[in-house]
């Protein structure tokens, strides 16, 4: 077994998970997507982050 097998397995798993999510999650809507840049958008940053304090 060589490293290429591990890399290929990771890429297949990643693609498989994205495919699973495409079926299970809400459909994508690019027309409701935020502007390309948060800076200058006038919108508050809303993405999740590991440093965000937990909900109270």
């Amino acid at each position: 077994m060589i490293r290429a097998h591990v890399t290929m397995a990771m890429l297949v798993l990643m693609a498989g998970f994205i495919a699973f999510d495409a079926v299970a999650a809400d459909p994508l809507n690019p027309y409701a997507a935020p502007p390309m840049l948060a800076l200058g958008s006038g919108m508050a940053a809303a993405g999740a982050h590991c440093a965000a304090p937990p909900p109270t």
Binding site: F17, I18, D21, A22, A25, D26, P27, L28, A33, A46, G47, A48, H49, C50, P55
Partner: peptide
């Protein structure tokens, strides 16, 4: 917020 992110496509999650 987390419920919404679980329901939304993974391709809309920053991390």
């Amino acid at each position: 917020g987390n419920q919404a992110q679980v329901a939304a496509s993974v391709l809309t999650d920053v991390t």
